[in-house]
Design a protein around this nucleic acid. Structure first.
Length: 504
RNA sequence: CGCGGGGUGGAGCAGCCUGGUAGCUCGCAAGGCUCAUAACCUUGAGGUCGGCGGUUCAAAUCCGUCCCCCGCAACCA
């Protein structure tokens, strides 16, 4: 059985400061990474920044900075975000690193050698002031002058020498690939979109530019730099030290298990990326999941609407783990979700403070009051006790099933309803036995057992708070005494040992 | 006729594929209680499931049509 698991976030384009969408992608990816780790997988979790292109080059020129120095700065804000989000990533890749250039150029050479890339001309309606190309449908003719519909700026017909990838050749092979790998694109509705798009016909893809030079040079023609997706997507390979296929990272983790991305870049990940890889004779990733957008209220966040929620400000005000919990629990994974201060506060109050916080509080108070944090040696379990404790291993099976299909909401709801909800705890053994002095020790044990289970399963959701709380129980003085004094020690350790929790 | 998603009690959503007492969270009202926080538990009020038509013994769920919102329309998390 393959116990390796490779998961990635998109690499972020740092032309603006990090926003909620970046935070969301990263937090969800981190959730999966941590989840897989507690299931015993050897996880490799990658994130990073995409630093090439004209926008970056211009921005650097405006500040009269060397592009790389400029990128060092902006990339750092994203690296800082990873720290702020407490991401458990194993690596942070930058497309300006030499290991990446080596990887991209190698992929390019293979594609060129196989005749998948050819030199031609890229042409289109270009607006100098917008620095952007527009399609025929995006421009209008006003008194004989062509203008962009959206910006109103003048556009002119421009032709530029460019290399093209024969994407049109891969239409049928992509369809075949999607058919063979039904779960390659999730959620299913997005898959349908992609498939129908591919069936409608694919044009060859421009993969180089001459008009600027901030990028990776085309190996065989230094006048060109490799453009956008062939550069950016390859980060997933270069982080594994591709093209060294004998490298241990590459051998262990490619093909990737899950590229987690926003739905806006689904097309590039679900069409271009497998096409590039199939063309180069490399296995495509196993799954691409396009999650939804995080909206503010009902609307897309935008500066003009003034409804931007800055993740850093939110974290500063409410804390990281509450934000993580909100995004994981309240957003229907795969669909668009929304966030507002009101909703966040409501969620924090009811779920985290009143339910989870209340549970923590009552467990502590219970243990103190009834057992003085000590467990007598002469307690025994009745069959009924064991039965209840056994339920937790069944829960565990359910949770694994959910997580394998990226059913984030089923996972979190299961935890909340079955484990955190005061209702479920109220019927649990210790609270029923607490008053009986002869079984106080058992009460202590079983509640710790249950709680141990709960906090372990919730650790991917709020890792920092979980560890902080777990340490209240599983420090040397308390945990050791409890564990060594009970008959089911071995079983307990097998299910969840304190050291496992604390290392999550 | 470009493509797709959505319209379910005050708010946010699930259910729809595989028709059969309309469910969850928050909010609201009334009781109760402790191992527990302005906590928790129980019960209750509140919905013609966007409109119209069809299939069916039976439709939120399938089919048709119309209205309204929101994305996408090739290089943008």
């Amino acid at each position: 059985m393959n116990k390796n698991y490779y998961i990635t976030t998109p690499i972020y384009y740092p032309s603006a400061k990090p926003h909620m969408g970046h935070a969301y992608s990263s937090i969800i990816a981190d959730f999966f990474a941590r989840l897989k780790r507690i299931q015993g997988f050897n996880v490799y979790f990658l994130t990073g920044t995409d630093e090439h292109g004209q926008k970056i080059q211009r921005a650097a020129e405006e500040k009269k900075m060397d592009p790389l120095l400029f990128c060092d700065q902006i990339s750092k804000t994203f690296r800082d975000l990873s720290d702020t989000l407490n991401l458990s990533n194993n690596d942070f890749i930058r497309t300006t690193e030499s290991r990446h250039a080596k990887s991209v150029q190698n992929l390019w050479n293979i594609l060129e050698k196989k005749g998948e890339i050819y030199l031609s001309k890229y042409s289109g309606w270009y607006s100098v002031s917008d620095e952007a190309f527009y399609t025929e449908s995006e421009i209008e003719d006003l008194d004989g002058v062509k203008k962009s519909i959206t910006s109103g700026s003048k556009v002119e017909w421009v032709e530029e020498e460019s290399y093209f990838f024969k994407l049109s050749n891969w239409q049928d092979k992509l369809i075949e690939f999607y058919n063979k790998n039904q779960d390659f694109i999730l959620p299913e509705t997005r898959k349908n979109e992609v498939v129908s798009f591919v069936k409608s016909g694919l044009k060859d893809l421009s993969v180089s530019r001459k008009s600027f030079n901030w990028g990776i040079k085309v190996p065989s023609n230094k006048e060109h730099v490799i453009y956008v997706w062939l550069d950016a997507l390859t980060n997933y390979l270069s982080a594994l030290n591709y093209p060294d296929e004998s490298d241990n990272l590459y051998k262990s983790f490619w093909p990737a298990d899950l590229h987690l991305i926003g739905k806006d870049i689904l097309r590039f990940h679900a069409i271009y990326w497998p096409a590039f890889l199939l063309a180069a004779g490399i296995d495509p990733p196993k799954r691409v999941f396009g999650h939804g957008w995080i909206l503010s209220g009902d609307e897309k966040m935008s500066k003009s609407k003034g409804n931007i929620l800055d993740p850093l400000e939110i974290i500063d005000t409410y804390g990281l783990d509450p934000l993580r919990y909100y995004l994981i629990k309240e957003v229907s994974f795969g669909n668009d979700g929304n966030i507002s201060q009101e909703k966040l506060e409501s969620c924090i109050n009811s779920d985290l403070a009143n339910n989870y916080g209340n549970l923590c509080q009552r467990v502590l108070a219970f243990c103190d009051k009834n057992a003085n944090f000590e467990v007598p040696d002469n307690d025994t379990f009745t069959d009924n006790d064991k039965l209840i404790l056994d339920q937790y291993s069944q829960h565990y099976d359910n949770l694994i099933k959910y997580s394998d299909n990226q059913n984030v909401n089923l996972y979190i709801n299961f935890i909340v309803e079955q484990l955190f909800a005061p209702k479920s705890s109220t019927t649990f053994i210790p609270f029923l036995l607490g008053q009986r002095a002869d079984r106080a020790g058992l009460s202590m044990f079983s509640i710790i057992f249950k709680f141990n289970f709960e906090i372990k399963k919730s650790a991917p959701v709020f890792p920092a708070d979980t560890i902080a709380f777990a340490s209240l129980f599983f420090n040397d003085s308390i945990a050791n005494h409890i564990l060594v004094s009970l008959p089911l020690l071995a079983a307990l350790k097998a299910v969840s040992s304190p050291s496992t929790i604390l290392s999550v």
